[in-house]
Design a protein around this nucleic acid. Sequence first.
RNA 1: UGGGACGUCGCCAAGUCGGUAAGGCACGGGAUUUUGAUUCCCGCAUUCGAAGGUUCGAGUCCUUCCGUCCCAGCCA
Length: 590
Amino acid sequence: MTDAASPNPVHDGTSNPSPGPNHFIRQIIIDDLARGRLAQIHTRFPPEPNGYLHIGHAKSICLNFGLAAEFTGLCNLRFDDTNPGKEDIEFVEAIKEDVRWLGYQWSELRHASDYFESFYRCAEKLIRVGLAYVCDLDADAVRNYRGTLTEAGRNSPFRERTVEENLDLFARMRAGEFADGARTLRAHIDMASGNINLRDPAIYRIRKVTHQHTGSDWCIYPMYDFAHCLSDAIEGISHSLCTLEFEDHRPLYDWYLDKIDLVNDPQLVAPVLQKGLTAPLSRPRQIEFSRLNLDYVLLSKRKLLALVNDRLVDGWNDPRMPTLCGIRRRGYPAAAVRELARRIGVTKQESVIEYSVLENLVREDLDASAERRMAVLDPIKLVLTNLAADHHELLVAANHPKDASRGSRQIAFGRELYIEREDFMEVPVKGFHRLVVGGEVRLRFAGIIRCIAVVKHDDGTIAELHATLDLASRHGMPGAERKVKGTLHWVCAAHAIAAEVRLYDRLFTVPDPDDERDGKSYRDHLNPDSVRVVTKAKLEASLGTAVAEQRFQFERLGYFVADRYQHQPNRPVFNRICSLRDSWTAVAKG
RNA sequence: UGGGACGUCGCCAAGUCGGUAAGGCACGGGAUUUUGAUUCCCGCAUUCGAAGGUUCGAGUCCUUCCGUCCCAGCCA
């Protein structure tokens, strides 16, 4: 048997081979499949195109697309675009790009608005069977009639209109005869229900605005609860996965589906077919799981939008943003995000994942995938006094310490080098095993040096360091085996290239920036040092050929990525993805 | 006595028909190391929100209580 390309690719094949720990939703699917309740699963990721996707959405994306891939099912990307005015084509394009970046391919791209004509027919059906009515109450009045959490609501005075009157009024709503907000179509359920979603919820409202996908075809738009379950059914969705806050909506989800009964009334869906779209009709089941939260991260769409609009960050793709385009630009590998989704599991427990879990997954991926290079962020000149002034040679440096297949590169070496300023201390603290006057240290790939002098400026600051290279300790020589307590990274002064390097840190200083119970807001918790721009970094010359989005480990410093938008060969710009794990700084700061 | 959901180690999270607490991350200790990185060992819940009860035996069953989250958009 030969491997044929999957007829319904939902994934690019780069995801993790193991589906990870089992969870209740996967178990439901396994059971459904085993019982023969369905032959194939069909999921969907249904974003509203009113903002950018963030790391929280990644959990849902990975769950929906991942499950479909795992069980050779299907997964659609559906824009839940039932509220024009808040939605924009800019967001739909960005969302598509983010889903692809995460490594997924949708089976079909749909819009809830593709089904507006069908929805309209479904609403008419509800009216005909006496389960929906046109209500003339305005928004304030509806609120008053709704009651409270502990008190039942009251029936609308328009609740018992005749079917004929309702049909006529609804048609006129569609025709644009009434002003925005003047009337709504409501479900006739139970104003005394303990579940407020069942107190005659709105089905359609009047909004005379242009829609990003349907233009000016409509002036009435369906509400989420009505549109979502029907969209699922029309697309043949088997498992409709959503977050916990929709648990209360499930009775309504089921109510609409049961009353409208699309499966046994397929002509309702004729308009979809007429558009050339398939409508495999199913009786989907909604299953809720807890959303992903990360500490020190803000994931509220509204506040993220405010950060952008108020210029607190440099746009949706600022490397400090938790948006998918932000973490992409920051250099996080998509595989690390997928792995996060895989490892955290799927439950109904509200949880907050420590940010370090994500960060360590990024390190785990990059340790294996990123080639090593040397760069000095805060250069101080080091002169090897026992080398000739014109000494120049090329050393060989392995690109990866654990993967010989990644080969090696040549690095320039000469009498004058740059090392990291913080790798030298005139008065060393306890436990410091880097360079000190009279002390020895290894220069990575080069050999062991001994510092013999500190040259200072008039103001007392250090101008340069003098050292001698132990020629017998050079790379490849027997003396290279000699142990010294520290190894430093460096670049050759004559050949290094200048670069801008941006050092990012968390955007917020508190674990829950969204918490305003102490009277403060997320704005009060912005980290003033969330970005530090280093303009005089020195890179080894080989980095001159780096291309945008290429990632490296700068030895001993961390992982860095060439900026997706601003990096240029003649003007390198690198973003720090994350630092290396560091068991020294913590000790040093004691 | 409004409705819905959830409470297993610092953070996640497994725990089939009740049979005597997986794993990951974090953390502590040690080994290796030309990155104080990586890797590798070892350790880390007599206890499952609490209290009763059923049982030879309960995280798993029953009762009560406590705590947390969600819902009163013509948002999704």
